[in-house]
Write a protein that binds this DNA or RNA. Structure first.
Lengths: 158, 158
DNA sequence: CCCACCTGTGCAACCAGTTGCACAAGTCCG
DNA sequence: CGGACTTGTGCAACTGGTTGCACAGGTGGG
């Protein structure tokens, strides 16, 4: 489980509201750890009651709450970053389908594969565009910026 | 969700008991869709009550039950193979950690990364060995055998 | 031959994540 | 200026999967 920690990372870079986090997850970081807005709101509240986050009512809007990482939250994060990571559990539905191809309609399966391939390459293009926009000159990056770029590179390569 | 279908594929190739399936999942097919034995037993029973499988008490051993795909089960499978597949949701804990590297101990994280890398390459070696053992001459493969090999190749490439 | 261990099956409690919906407050347009 | 639409937050029910444990029956060694 890591949604808590992904949120800590994102909020550590910059505080934000539920919806802002949802949007961040829809773009950059969500490529590596996806989540719905409901899930994000739920976890944010739990993290606050656990004392990992503090929230203040938003600038003007009534229902908005902007979350910030507390001291205890950043301790948790620091500890987690150095902790052992379980090996990536690949889970590919399409691979299972391909393995069972002879029990179904090969033509149809092939069409589905082509859909996925198209979807994949459009995502690829999207991330290359993000890279161009946000990291026009990778050579000068350091620290957090460099990390973010490297992970994005990793995603693109994959 | 696809554990049901992965089981249908595996049982379609050859009937088997819970433990046999668990072992198959530990090796070849489990690389693409992992599952614990408890989960497998649970789903097998449900599939039987849903009429996708039939079971007979094992050869001699008392508690053993050997499952076979029914007509209705193979219809479900055929239908599923041709159905649209949601895009692969990558979920990489290590990527999140790398993105949060500056909130923790870089040295430690690097060590964890090296662990994963080692684990990865040992898995890679294991799958290449499987390929050598089970598919010494890929050129002659057809049908189901060919599918299985292709998916294994895909896993290795990844 | 009997006791300790192993193998195969399975239940129960829990947990993270998804789906579907609701509702308050703000905004925009006719 | 009032009704329709949008935005942000959130609850409830459900689902797929994990963890921890139990137990029956078989097996092997002292």
């Amino acid at each position: 489980m890591a949604l808590e920690h992904a949120l800590l990372v994102s909020l550590g870079e910059r505080p934000g509201t539920g919806i802002e986090l949802t949007r961040r997850f829809d773009r950059s970081i969500g490529f590596f750890w996806n989540a719905t807005h409901q899930q994000i709101y739920k976890v944010l509240r739990r993290m606050e009651t656990d004392g990992w986050l503090r929230s203040e009512a938003g600038d003007s809007r009534s229902t908005e709450r902007r979350y910030t990482v507390t001291e205890s939250g950043s301790q948790v994060l620091a500890q987690w970053v150095g902790s052992p990571t379980p090996p990536v559990a690949l889970r590919s539905e399409i691979a299972v389908k391909m393995r069972g191809a002879s029990f179904g309609d090969r033509e149809q399966l092939l069409a589905r594969l082509q859909d996925l391939r198209a979807e994949h390459s459009s995502r690829h293009a999207h991330f290359e565009q993000l890279e161009r926009e946000q990291f026009p000159d990778p050579g000068v990056l350091t620290g957090q910026q460099l990390d973010t770029w490297l992970v994005l590179r990793g995603g693109i390569k994959q």
